[in-house]
Design a protein around this nucleic acid. Structure first.
Lengths: 143, 143
DNA sequence: TAAATAAAAGATAAAAAGATCTTTAAATAA
DNA sequence: TTATTTAAAGATCTTTTTATCTTTTATTTA
């Protein structure tokens, strides 16, 4: 469904927001240990997210990734679209080039329903609420 | 969502069933022209489906791909699982290794709902009913 | 200011997915 | 039987995705 990059990205962002709420920044090493992700690859992903303004970073001692208050309002859909783009929500399920409402592919309508609910779900979940579940020990980022 | 192989596979199978209902076999060339897919790649996919018994084939003049009556009952889920496996329905949305009901990832429950409805959709759609829409000009396999 | 820390950036490498080409085998029809 | 047709099989190639390594730049602290 999501690319590996997107999976790592979402997990990393959840952890970063959690750390920010504890008043700390999250170093790439900590992040990757915590979410069990490859370090240089995840660093790349976060550099991109940082450049796009979804998260912030600071170099040097005690540096690392964090979120500004306004960034803490991130919805999951923002992260997904930043990393995987929106083809999951706009592309044809069967890869038919000119699939549209007028000339639908064989599963166009059924598919639309599914991915609309996927999109809706991602739009309604904030990263922040997931960090709460995380601190409460309700959900996990690794084994 | 689906791999390219799966997209081509589904489109090809729909066309093959349609041709079978017209009492003909579908050659790989015809198939690929009709669904706008790369020929050797699609041939590989159909060879696999044939080996797995989802479709039938015959060599020689007037040969090609077709379905036996019992194969015409194919559901979309059969094709998807044959090509992409079932990781879409069983794997964790965030790629967390030991994600489970007991130790769920942050979006485990929301994700489950989505993919259950996806699975349900694929289980309830038969390839055959899609060929009807195709012959009625209601849906399209290419532009 | 100098040393240490940590992200940024760029180059490179490995693996997987997607696509192609060539040869072989089976079936049919002349 | 022989030539023709068409899928099967195997080898190969390309592109994209995933992952790593090295060097540079920014920041902090001593």
């Amino acid at each position: 469904m999501f690319s590996k990059a997107c999976e790592y990205g979402i997990r990393a962002v959840i952890f970063i927001v959690a750390r920010t709420e504890q008043g700390k920044r999250a170093g790439i090493k900590d992040i990757c240990k915590e979410i069990e992700a490859p370090e240089p690859f995840t660093a790349k992903i976060l550099q991109n997210l940082s450049r796009m303004g979804l998260v912030s970073s600071m170099k040097g001692p005690n540096g690392g990734f964090y979120v500004e208050p306004h960034q803490a309002q991130l919805k999951l859909i923002d992260v997904v679209k930043a990393i995987d783009g929106d083809k999951l929500f706009t592309g044809c399920g069967l890869g038919v080039k000119e699939c549209s409402e007028d000339k639908p592919c064989p599963i166009h309508h059924q598919f639309k329903a599914i991915r609309n609910s996927l999109q809706e779900m991602l739009e309604n979940i904030s990263v922040r609420e997931l960090t709460e579940d995380l601190s409460n020990g309700l959900v996990f980022l690794k084994k």
